[in-house]
Amino acid sequence: MSKVIRIGIIDDNAALLQQLAQNLTAFENIDIVFTAPNGMAALNEIETCERLPELLLMDIEMPVMNGIETTRVITNESQIKVLMLTVFDTDDKIFEAIKAGAAGYLLKDSKPHKIVTAIEEVMQGGAAMSPTIASKTLDLLRSLTEKKSSPTPKDYNLSDREIQLLELLVEGYTYQQIADQMFISHGTVRKHIENIYEKLRIHSKIEAVNKANKYNWFAKNRI
């Protein structure tokens, strides 16, 4: 027989809470220590209950104290693990839950045996997720990695003036048009461009344009 796992269930939907508790009670290795309608009630239960839960199934949107905030408090102040169980599959909810310390993220349409498997996985040190959530999480991590790894003009030590000039160059302005736009001489434009090329480690206008476009440095300013 598998080790019995003590859990708490937190959800403000009384009918769903009762149904979930009933479904999970059927599993011999699940011991429901308490249920609570919101995060604050859960914290009160943890403070007063004789047998602490090892894991909490946590909804997100709840009155008084939501699941994200509750998860943050619990993971900071105890060894209790939190497995989100919610209807929300948006990137911001997933990201906030992970940042708060959630060890897993399931959707409420998960079958009872899948929930129990996820509970066991989390208790063994894993990170349980519904398939769609796992896919979204990977996409989110890739997006964050790409944003983090993409350099900005400031990373190349370009001055504000040089960035302004580079943007005009990327937009197709000639040296004379840049000079007129920035109220500087043609010679000063050439000197700035030489400095830009040196800092970007390139040798031509086409390389400058390609580099700026590659990292979308000025895309947000275009109409």
Score class of each variant (00 low, 15 high):
Lys3Asn: 13
Ile7Lys: 03
Ile10Gly: 01
Asn13Asp: 14
Ala14Arg: 07
Ala15Ser: 12
Leu16Arg: 10
Leu17Asp: 10
Asn23Val: 05
Leu24Asp: 03
Leu24Lys: 06
Ile30Tyr: 02
Ile32Leu: 05
Phe34Trp: 07
Thr35Cys: 07
Thr35Leu: 05
Ala36Asp: 09
Gly39Thr: 14
Met40Tyr: 06
Leu43Phe: 09
Asn44Arg: 13
Asn44Asp: 12
Ile46Leu: 11
Thr48Lys: 10
Glu50Pro: 05
Arg51Tyr: 08
Leu52Gly: 03
Pro53Tyr: 09
Glu54Thr: 11
Leu55Ser: 05
Met58Ser: 14
Asp59Arg: 00
Asn66Asp: 15
Ile68Asn: 01
Glu69Asn: 13
Thr70Gly: 13
Thr71Asp: 08
Arg72Glu: 15
Arg72Phe: 12
Asn76Phe: 05
Glu77Ile: 08
Gln79Lys: 12
Leu83Asp: 06
Leu85Thr: 02
Leu85Glu: 01
Thr86Leu: 01
Phe88Tyr: 15
Asp89Lys: 06
Asp91Cys: 04
Lys93Arg: 04
Lys93His: 14
Phe95Arg: 11
Phe95Thr: 01
Ala97Asn: 06
Ile98Thr: 12
Lys99Gly: 05
Ala100Pro: 07
Ala103Leu: 10
Tyr105Lys: 06
Tyr105Ile: 11
Leu106Pro: 11
Leu106Val: 14
Lys108Glu: 09
Pro112Gln: 09
Pro112Arg: 04
Ile115Glu: 12
Ile115Tyr: 09
Ile119Thr: 11
Ile119Asn: 04
Val122His: 05
Gln124Tyr: 14
Gly125Phe: 08
Gly126Pro: 05
Thr132Asn: 13
Ser135Arg: 15
Lys136Ile: 11
Asp139Ile: 00
Leu140Ile: 02
Leu140Gly: 05
Arg142Asn: 10
Ser143Val: 00
Ser149Cys: 11
Ser150Gln: 12
Pro153Met: 11
Pro153Ala: 12
Asp155His: 15
Asn157Cys: 11
Asp160Ser: 12
Arg161Asn: 09
Arg161Ile: 14
Arg161Tyr: 03
Glu162Arg: 06
Ile163Leu: 04
Glu167Asp: 13
Glu167Ile: 01
Leu168Arg: 10
Leu168Asn: 10
Leu169Glu: 06
Val170Ala: 12
Val170Cys: 13
Gln177Asp: 13
Ile178Gly: 00
Gln181Cys: 07
Met182Ala: 09
Phe183Ala: 12
Arg190Val: 04
Arg190Leu: 05
Arg190Cys: 01
His192Ile: 03
Glu194Gln: 11
Glu194Gly: 03
Ile196Phe: 01
Glu198Lys: 04
Glu198Thr: 00
Arg201Gln: 14
His203Leu: 03
His203Trp: 02
Ile206Asn: 07
Val209Met: 15
Lys211Asn: 02
Lys211Leu: 13
Lys211Pro: 00
Ala212Glu: 06
Tyr215Thr: 06
Asn216Tyr: 01
Asn216Leu: 01
Trp217His: 12
Lys220Cys: 03
Lys220Tyr: 09
Arg222Ser: 10
Ile223Arg: 08
